[in-house]
Design a binder for these strands. Structure first.
Lengths: 192, 192
DNA sequence: TGATTTCATTGACTATTATCAACGTATTTT
DNA sequence: AAAATACGTTGATAATAGTCAATGAAATCA
């Protein structure tokens, strides 16, 4: 049932069967159909979601209605409005399903009980957020120092599976480009 | 001696005097003169540095010799090449002192012993990196969705103290702009 | 203190990408 | 199955920031 979830955990730290049983007891499952929201701006984000199946994105919408994609999540990834989750403040972005999804959810209260009962889970959690921090740092470096061509190439190198499953205009938004520009970059690249 | 350091810790979680004594015993101090390196590209980053006094920056240098500022750190902040620190791989960026600095250092081995002896310190560490992650997320949003004017204004709003202490061309680099562009933005803003 | 280097500003020019609009195709909805 | 919507591509144009170069001021160094 929770195979992928524990596979990911055990890649970083090994958990015993008992520990896994304790953790499991705090998880709930949720299915989302394509285009459904997991979270809407203004709601408080009550859970962190682990993706068992499907694809989601987190995005904000500015005054002019322009969408900015902050994050994608595929199988094995985690997605949440972490600021809202941590503070209880209303969310500043939306999370919705790009494909039909199966998720595992954990609430803040549940997470804290698991931290208390299975300290290794807090270590895992620290390592997980550290990894997310480092990935984000790479993204900033890519935004600051690469040409648009390199930025796109770098992206499809790191996330080949995203490019195949996500509409191009969302990728453009993630990269800070217009859809037209991504289309032209692809054209240039395919000409070579 | 370690006043500022424990002040920062206690803002998030309170530590007893004993706990603070244990943690202290794992810290070392280091002074840096302006322009000295804390870390050079290619070295393994052995420590995380807490800034007691002064200002530093982390930056990478590309093939053309262009510097890209990834991070600033002032009093009370933490700075490190976390990827190198975590993995033991050679650092991909430099850290140097913008002003004379006084630092507290903790090695990876020391950190792990402290995690074992004072579990709360791991909780603190998780919260600290989570905060850094969220700050970085805001920076990405600023890079993706704000006009250059707004980006500069947003920066001086969040970090007024950095603008006063750091050369303008480093701020420009942090914002992904040329020094000329920042100069023109400032001119435009002062005209209003 | 005088010399040297670093830094910020300004102007002229160029390259690049966003914007706007139109079109054809694919996908979704009813 | 037909209609409506969403998506990607292409072209023309405009706006914007980068590049290059020169200057003066400030900070650093010897």
């Amino acid at each position: 049932m929770y195979d992928l979830f524990f596979q990911k955990l055990n890649e970083k730290i090994s958990f015993t069967a008992e520990e896994q049983a304790i953790i499991s007891s705090y998880l709930t499952t949720k299915k989302l159909r394509k285009k459904q929201y997991l979270l809407q701006e203004g709601d408080v984000c009550k859970t962190i979601a682990f993706v068992q199946k499907g694809a989601l994105r987190a995005y904000s919408v500015n005054e002019k209605g322009v969408e900015n994609v902050l994050q994608f999540a595929l199988e094995g990834w985690i997605i949440s409005d972490l600021y809202s989750f941590m503070t209880g403040e209303p969310a500043t972005y939306y999370i919705d399903a790009i494909e039909d999804c199966e998720l595992l959810l954990i609430t803040k209260a549940a997470q804290e009980e698991v931290f208390a009962k299975v300290p290794k889970y807090e270590t895992y959690s620290r390592m997980q957020i550290t990894g997310a921090y480092l990935a984000m740092q790479k993204r900033i470096t890519s935004l600051l120092s690469l040409s648009l061509n390199e930025r796109y190439l770098n992206f499809i190198n790191i996330y080949p599976n995203i490019v195949q499953r996500v509409p191009q205009h969302m990728v453009a938004s993630y990269l800070g480009l217009t859809p037209e520009t991504v289309s032209r970059i692809r054209k240039r690249l395919s000409a070579k």
